[in-house]
Amino acid sequence: MEITQPACTDPVIWNQWHVISALDEVPAGVVSETLLLDERISFTTSPDGEYRVWRSSSRLPAGAEIDGPASLNGLDALPVKPEYGYLWTSLGEPPDDLFPLPEYHHPKRRNMNAGSVGVATSAPRAVENFLDLAHFPYVHEGSLGVLPHTEVAEYDVEVRDGEVHATKCDMMVPKVGVNFDEPLVMRYRYRVPHPYCVMLYYDSLPDPSLEDICAIWVQPMTADRVRAHNYMGVIDDTSTNTDIKGYQLLIFAQDKPILENQHPKRLPLDPRAETPIRADRSAIAYRRWLSDLGVTYGVIPAGL
């Protein structure tokens, strides 16, 4: 067999857990194939009920049916971690645990797969866009933002416990229900616990003592092509899954043409590559954090 050098030479990214599918979309008894860090990998739910991931093999191509667990023997198996409703794997040596998400297990929370979208951009560009408040009134007019309320108030940013946190992020949103005639200010907080994963928290409208969570966990297919997996964990007894998923896909469909028109696609980490303003402090912190971690995949490292 020919040994080829992997396209990803970044040990930080190589040894991470990476999301590849929502669990409810992993086919049973049939091989599914995807791309991770330029490598073809296959996955399935084995007849014994276990999730399996392996480097793709011509012996079991995509779409092949699996007769019994034994037919999965002898493959180049990869680590498997079903967590938070998604299937995670790694091409390298991942840590024992994925980042913590204790809110996931709250009994009132509805955890759901809100759809996966392919985007021709790098994972860090997708994460940075998710952190960005200033585009709401332009890209998401009528849903997340409303013109002319374009101001981004000062907010707090820090790196804490190895994660980037942006807090007290206030943004004017359009009326969100029948009881609101005027736009109102929403307060968000953001958390980046993984180079390619970002979560947004805000007080739940039905129960303000709890927070709704909206996240994208980005699967790096290549350095400039991703699948963004939308996770939602909400306190909501009225909306249907279709409503929530439809809304998330609408939002993402608005972001997609912007992300695919950014140049360069890989996120430049050199401070002089682009022009930050105060509203971009979370993005600046994220770029510095990636630099400090030594991430080189999906980015243009500073000094190149």
Partner: peptide, 27 residues
């Protein structure tokens, strides 16, 4: 150059109001 120097978005997807070019991403 077809690139807003803020976040690199193509200016060709922006709008031309006859006097100014507005970037589609952050206005």
């Amino acid at each position: 150059e077809n690139r807003c120097l803020h976040r690199g978005v193509r200016l060709s997807i922006g709008s031309n109001d006859g006097t100014e070019l507005r970037c589609q991403y952050h206005g």
